[in-house]
């Protein structure tokens, strides 16, 4: 059977879509709005946040949260360009989109390991 590589990308897209659907709204509300507005000062002090994100479970969670939805976004963006009429350079666009997700994944791993 001929192997299209699409199943890999689609499964990452789907997994990332689930993760984003479950936690992206509350994450954005927490770090993008609550922390930014200083709603709960003692919750977002440096010492507490450092302790919270340094926990192994938090690191694993943050890695999954960043990596998988990046693949989700890369996949959707790639197909959005096609849906907007992109005909030439489809291969290049795929490489750039998924490449960005791979780069983000590596960066996330580095940041989280070094915490």
């Amino acid at each position: 059977m001929r192997h299209s590589s699409e199943p890999i990308w689609w499964s990452l897209f789907a997994a990332g879509g689930v993760v984003a659907a479950l936690v992206a709204p509350v994450q954005i509300a927490l770090t993008g709005i609550a922390a930014a507005l200083g709603w709960a000062d003692d919750a977002f002090t440096h010492a507490r946040v450092l302790a919270l994100v340094s926990h192994p479970i938090s690191r694993l969670y943050l890695f999954v949260l960043i990596s998988l939805p990046l693949f989700h976004s890369a996949h959707r963006f790639r197909f959005t360009l096609i849906d907007l009429g992109l005909k030439q350079g489809r291969g290049l666009v795929a490489v750039l989109c998924y490449g960005a997700a791979v780069a983000g994944t590596i960066l996330a791993a580095l940041v989280l390991i070094r915490l």
Partner: peptide, 12 residues
């Protein structure tokens, strides 16, 4: 998905 990707970068 674009908004979500940008958010993830800001989170990182």
């Amino acid at each position: 998905s674009v908004f979500i990707a940008i958010y993830l970068v800001l989170l990182l």
